[in-house]
Amino acid sequence: MAIDTTIYVRPQSGISAYLDWLQMLTGAGLILFMWSHMILVASVNFGVDAMNTIAKFFEDSYMAQVGGPMIGLTFLLHFALAARKVPFRTEQQSTMWKHGKMLHHKDTWLWVVQAVTAMIILIMGAIHMWTVLTDLPITAQKSAARIQGGFWLVFYLILLPMVELHVGIGFYRIAVKWGFIKRKTRQGFKGFENILTLIFIAIGLITIVRFILIQVIQV
């Protein structure tokens, strides 16, 4: 807390509050999107047709064409809002790093993980969205071909855990910050959240394997 050496009248405004609301709401919106996204992509495990049907539904209803860019905007907005909290100055970064090392405190480390995964998602997520949305329609065959190229396989193997970690920690964070989870339920909820994250990573990995196998089956 700084001690003021100037006297000035701060104009009364709720700006911090509105930005915090938006940060939480865009975060929550992206979580919901990621869960739906997982359902769409993982549907390939029930067969190529299952995924293609769902993808076609999204395109016929224009949800992919309109919703895609909307998610893109939410993504950017969320980045701009959350970036207010990310230490970009080296001095702050090293303070946070030393602090984390000193404290041996899991939740503090989780925040560091959140900030680091965020930067990776910013770059890789943007590339991924661009690639998919400029190459509509989404079909299982196209996705499979991409993954089998090798480059995208490595790409997704990195992006998947990054996103799931960020989503999992973000979910937990919203719950504790806004008082949905109280002291009594915190440890239990954290455990639940960790398991959820692991399950999502597992489903993602299975899905990637499935994509690798698709063409093999079809050729």
Binding site: M1, S16, A17, L19, R84, D107, T108, W111, K177, R186
Partner: peptide
């Protein structure tokens, strides 16, 4: 109700 106050808190719970 500011970023120096509750909205600056990042919920690290240390």
């Amino acid at each position: 109700g500011t970023d120096e106050g509750i909205f600056g808190c990042m919920g690290l719970l240390a």
